[in-house]
């Protein structure tokens, strides 16, 4: 499912990014690669705030819709 729908407080693993070269490049530099664990600190309203590789990143709704995750058990 898209990262944008990840409920607040839950964790997931990135499975892929469906976007242009630029977006992939940008997100890769910030540590968002397939297989990475993310946790949603805030979601639902406007941009989403996640924790990834020990940092906090805010992603706009549009971006968060292009990042696909699998909720970890």
């Amino acid at each position: 499912m898209p990262l944008a729908f990840l409920p607040e407080g839950s964790s997931a693993t990135i499975v892929g990014i469906r976007g242009g070269r630029r977006l992939v490049r940008r997100l890769t530099g910030l540590g968002l690669t397939p297989g990475t664990q993310v946790r949603a600190l805030r979601s639902g309203y406007g941009p989403i705030l996640i924790e990834v590789r020990g940092t906090r990143l805010a992603l706009g709704k549009g971006v968060a819709m292009k990042v696909f995750v699998e909720v970890s058990a």
């Binding site: 977006l23 910030l30 941009p47 906090r56 805010a58 706009g60 549009g62």
Partner: peptide
């Protein structure tokens, strides 16, 4: 076009 994707580090 739309505003570019919003990505910012906290």
């Amino acid at each position: 076009g739309k505003a570019s994707p919003f990505v910012i580090e906290f």
